[in-house]
Design a protein around this nucleic acid. Structure first.
Lengths: 137, 137
DNA sequence: TTTACATATGTCTAATTTAGCATGCATCAA
DNA sequence: TTGATGCATGCTAAATTAGACATATGTAAA
């Protein structure tokens, strides 16, 4: 984690930088939109990105303080936790102000992927046949 | 100027990227705060950055669509022009939500520098003795 | 028409960032 | 215990970015 003691303004540039990359912006948008946590493999499926990229981008978002992580068994779940800070609230509003139709594909794939959960839990792995059947509709 | 036709989402990542660097964030904050245009040499004096850096960072902000430019004689003035787009409005609110006390030095230097204008015009150059006397108070 | 000034920009280098690949480490099931 | 799954991370090369320096362009003043 970066040391913001040296220059407190860096906390803000770090947040903007975290949102300055396409995959991270998509992840952030999804986490702000779905009112639930999501696992790494689910994000991999939704965004069709490599496991490496998703993991690393999640770490950058997390280090910026934008999202949080919770481990459950072998899964790592990431989620957005509303903050009381004014800046953080506006960051959320800003990202949510991105026109929804630019995220159509991501929304559809995310809904499909999350609907495969059993009892609200992420059960099915990234490479499952069930997802393979669904994902390219 | 970047071609946002390829992926319209890049318009948004480009804006976040423009704000992800310290000097540019300071410039943006100042332009949002001072309800007036400001010349390149005034910014150089206020932020104590090189002419090269200020020019280049201004160009990045301008290419992101965050600020605008107006040439007057040998001066180039930059300014913020409020936008009707929801995203742009929230970007402004977000930047303005940065605690003011993190910009104290910049505020003071900017007020001093702008007070040196004559008839609202930027007259005195960056290297003038008058500014040299004031700037290190 | 020189000269000074304000600004932009091209080149080089160093630092940072990104993706691909491979590997390591848990956890869980068989 | 073995193997499979979910995830993190170290290494490398490629791409991007930032700053220093030098120079070019345009304007205004002498």
């Amino acid at each position: 984690m970066k040391n913001f003691e040296i220059n407190p303004l860096e906390r803000y540039t770090t947040i903007f930088k975290a949102l300055s990359e396409l995959t991270r912006l998509k992840i952030m948008w999804l986490l702000l939109s779905i009112d639930s946590k999501i696992s790494v493999s689910e994000i991999i499926d939704v965004l069709e990105e490599s496991q490496y990229n998703v993991s690393k981008h999640l770490k950058i978002l997390k280090n910026a303080g934008l999202i949080h992580e919770k481990k459950e068994g072998k899964w790592s779940f990431y989620y957005y936790l509303p903050s009381e800070a004014l800046f953080d609230k506006y960051v959320k509003e800003t990202v949510m102000a991105i026109p929804k139709d630019l995220m159509t594909k991501e929304i559809i794939r995310c809904e499909k992927r999350l609907s495969m959960r059993v009892d609200g839990k992420c059960i099915i792995g990234a490479e499952s046949d069930e997802w393979a059947e669904l994902k390219n509709d």
